[in-house]
Amino acid sequence: MPVPSERELIDGAAQGDRAASRALYERYAPRVYAVVRRIAGDEDLAEDAAQEAWIRAFRALPGFRGDARFSTWLHRIAVNSALQGLRGRRRRSEVQETLPDDLPDPGDDESADPLAARRLEAALDRLPQGMRTILVLHDVEGFTHGEIAERLGVQPGTSKSQLFKARARMRLILKGSELDLAGERSSDRETGD
């Protein structure tokens, strides 16, 4: 039995076909979840945002005209759902004072690779929400500063400055000695910029 094409799956799902809907879901769920998880910064919000993204996508599917690639179309929906989820969440303290338990010690990593993907994921969760959102949208998802500015309602310059702060913070987190390096920076890395 031939494997249905993506277009056939889309058409089937648009008509409410359960098998086609599930096949589309299985194909793209990891990608959708990855983007909302990284923007959300925690599992609960990510689960909700991913569900919302899929519901929106299935609602909108009959109007999908194939002008953009389906993966691109779905990705945009996922990003929007994650951002809306963040806006709707009650404000909470952005800066955590302690490292999360699942952030590996830099010296414990068996691969000895300080930039292993799982450490990056954990470090992303350590970033303040605003920085994390911009870092994920720019460095992970490939949005331009103009696109980020439009989605977040900020100036492109703000997006740039927050990105640079976020990269610097990530670097410090990954080196695993944020406080020491911060001290080093204040005493040794001052600049006349």
Partner: peptide
């Protein structure tokens, strides 16, 4: 290097 690895992060399975 950090930026390059971020751009290549793999997908994540949902719960």
């Amino acid at each position: 290097e950090q930026t390059q690895v971020l751009a290549a992060l793999p997908s994540v399975r949902p719960g």
